[in-house]
Each structure stands twice: as structure tokens, then as C-alpha cells.
Simulated assay, not measured.
Amino acid sequence: MRRLYVILSFLVFCLSPIAAYSADLKLVVLGDSLSAGYQLAPEEGFPEQLQKALDARGYSVQVVNAGVSGDTSSGGLSRLDWSVGTDADAVIVELGANDALRGIQPQITRNNLDEITKRLRERGVEVLLAGMLAPRNLGPEYAEVFDPIYSELAKLHGALLYPFFLEGVALNPDLNLSDGIHPNADGVAIIVENILPKVEELLAKAQSS
């Protein structure tokens, strides 16, 4: 009886949520306030809502929030090595919005995102570039140089591309905070729903690599 009790106890432990949680993949979201959950409850941010969506689909993946509000592509590059550990299997790079808002030269943004993507790919990490569009008040010349950065770098480095992170959310007052820039919880839910197919493609690549 004692031996049976020990076996049953072991099985209960192995099947418990705490013991069973050992994700096969680690997905890091390297971003700025748009993905960091600016002014949102802890469970309402992009990484957290993405985690719930992937859990619901049966994925064994841990989504890590490596977003820093106010970060530029330069900031993301400077903290890359400690923000994305050696155990990362895949990364969503969501950077560049603050570059455009500050009018930083697009070539600087390109160089930073190029270096980030190159370093990650050299480590064997699968990358999804979440694109951004330049504010149109900066003029057509700026947009013509800034907007293609993400698609061109994705092609160059064999990374996946989601063309516009705020697709379906930007400029919609019902889906943004009062500042008109950052998505609210409902806006984040739309982003997660839209980007999910690309994230699933990213995880498939990471699983097979």
C-alpha cells in the first residue's frame, strides 16, 4: 500500500500544473511601450495576451516581455544580449516607432534593426520583424525611406515579417488610450488576433530548427 501511495503521489505531482509547466520553446518580445503594456494592467499587455492565445491553442511556449517604454532601436540594440538570453528560440522585434516619432534618420534605424536581426539569426534564433510606419506629418520623403526598412531586412536575413504592428488599431480612438498612440486592452487583443498566424509560423520555424 505504501508503495502504491508513493507511485500515485508521484503521478499527481507530475500531472500538476506547476510540475507540468515546462515550455518547449521560449519566445521573447523585444520592443518598446507598444508591446511592453504601457499603462495597462499586468495581464493586458501584448506578451501576456499572446501567451493566453497560444496557451489556448495548445502551444508549449513561454512568452517573455522584454519591452521597455520609450526605447528606440538604438536602445534595443544596446540591451540585446541581456534582454534576449541564450535560451531564446524565437524573438518578435517590435522597435522603431520611437525612432520615427523623434524624427531619427531612417538609416540609423535601419542599421540598428539590421544589427539586431543579424545577431539573432547568427545565434540560430528565429525572428519576426513587426513593422512600423512613419508618421505622415514627417513628410513623404521620410516615409519613403523609413517604411520599407522592415520588409527589406526580413528578406535580407530570412526573417518573418508582420508589416504593421498596429494594423487595425492605429488611429481608432476606441482601441487606444487617451494619448491616441498606445493601444488599450481591446486594441492589444486585435493586434494579437491579427499577428497570431505569423507568430504560429515563427514557432513552427523555431520548432524545426
Rank of each mutant, 00 (worst) to 15 (best):
M1G: 15
L4I: 09
L4V: 08
L4C: 02
Y5G: 05
V6T: 12
V6R: 14
L8D: 09
L8I: 15
V12P: 03
F13N: 01
S16F: 11
S16P: 10
P17V: 08
Y21N: 10
A23N: 07
A23K: 04
L25C: 03
L25R: 10
V28Y: 11
V28G: 10
L34A: 03
S35D: 05
A36E: 15
Y38L: 10
P42V: 11
E43A: 14
E43M: 02
E44F: 00
G45T: 09
F46M: 13
E48I: 06
E48D: 11
K52S: 13
K52W: 06
K52C: 01
A53C: 00
S60P: 08
V61R: 04
V61I: 07
V61Q: 05
Q62G: 05
A66I: 01
A66Q: 08
A66K: 09
V68M: 09
G70R: 06
D71I: 07
D71L: 08
T72E: 01
S73A: 13
G75P: 07
S78M: 12
R79L: 00
S83L: 14
S83A: 14
D87W: 11
D89N: 15
V93T: 10
E94R: 02
A97G: 15
N98P: 07
D99F: 01
A100Y: 03
L101M: 14
G103S: 01
I108S: 03
T109I: 10
R110E: 11
N111I: 07
D114E: 11
D114G: 08
E115K: 13
E115F: 00
K118C: 05
L120G: 07
E122G: 09
L128T: 00
M132C: 11
M132L: 11
A134W: 07
A134D: 09
R136M: 02
R136F: 01
N137C: 12
N137V: 06
G139E: 03
P140N: 08
E144W: 00
V145E: 15
F146D: 01
F146R: 02
F146M: 03
P148M: 12
I149N: 09
I149C: 12
E152R: 14
L153K: 06
L153H: 04
L153V: 06
K155T: 13
L156N: 13
L160P: 02
P163H: 05
P163G: 05
P163Y: 01
F164V: 14
V169M: 06
A170R: 13
N172M: 02
D174M: 09
L175A: 01
N176A: 03
G180M: 07
N184I: 09
A185C: 08
A185S: 15
A185G: 11
D186S: 15
G187N: 04
A189R: 14
V192W: 02
L196Q: 04
L196A: 05
V199D: 12
L203H: 05
L203Y: 08
A204M: 09
